[in-house]
Design a protein around this nucleic acid. Sequence first.
DNA 1: CTACATCCTCTAGCGACTAGAGGAGCAAGC
DNA 2: GCTTGCTCCTCTAGTCGCTAGAGGATGTAG
Lengths: 140, 140
Amino acid sequence: MTSYPIGAAARRTGVKVPTIRYYEQIGLVPMPCRTDGNRRLYTERDLRRLAFIRHARELGFAIEAIRALLSLQDDPSRPCGTADAIAKARLAEVKQRIRSLTALKAELELMVEGCRHGEVAKCRVIEVLADHCKCANLRH
Amino acid sequence: MTSYPIGAAARRTGVKVPTIRYYEQIGLVPMPCRTDGNRRLYTERDLRRLAFIRHARELGFAIEAIRALLSLQDDPSRPCGTADAIAKARLAEVKQRIRSLTALKAELELMVEGCRHGEVAKCRVIEVLADHCKCANLRH
DNA sequence: CTACATCCTCTAGCGACTAGAGGAGCAAGC
DNA sequence: GCTTGCTCCTCTAGTCGCTAGAGGATGTAG
């Protein structure tokens, strides 16, 4: 069976070497077997697990959520309601984040557009920061 | 001149007490004068500075960016190009973040919609996480 | 004079890595 | 066999922006 040292595993999964070691340390990936010279050797299965983690991290799932998703994956006969709930929770977070960033974007655009590139004393950017009431959107 | 102990300053600016002390520690706000009993006393000017910081943090500016903005504010005769550049950089970050979160949202929606609420073995959520190629958007 | 709130300093923790020190293992060329 | 240079090992400490808690001092109201 083919096996990979940590550098090759990193290249193949896109997870950096120190990050793989970190995941092992926190128990997110199992401790792989080692060579006589004490080097880690990863199997294809290990690589799939790392790729799964990487993909989930890219989608912004927290490590603890990923831990739950991985334990579900390890037991495929269980109902997938939990996985669904985790994904839905993440989706709700993302939607909320987009909303607040969009409001923020509007505020920043007003600041930047209002700037007449003169002195700081008349700078709209500084002015708005100093006085919340000058915000278009007073909710924050 | 009116002055405020740290709790009152916190209530008036919306910056929490430990956060104010933290800002002092990192030199973002000056060390205020103290009472005989060694308690901090903030002036109106201090409160304005704290409110400025709070507002900037709400808009997502990094502490170092705020440090730069504050030093500009302290010297109002300087040209405001730097302030403008900082705000523009932040705006670009926010726009980029919105773009990537929007792509992410689409991906999550596909995952969640595709889930038929059966077993984990057939769960679209787990499946997509395990296999990047099943993503609609392959850029990430 | 006693509660109780507020304040003080100091240290440690969060999440998810990242950087760097100091050393060992390993493969290829000479 | 020997050197070069890459990869790997462990360990500690740092990143950002706070937040929590210990353990004690001060201030105020009844």
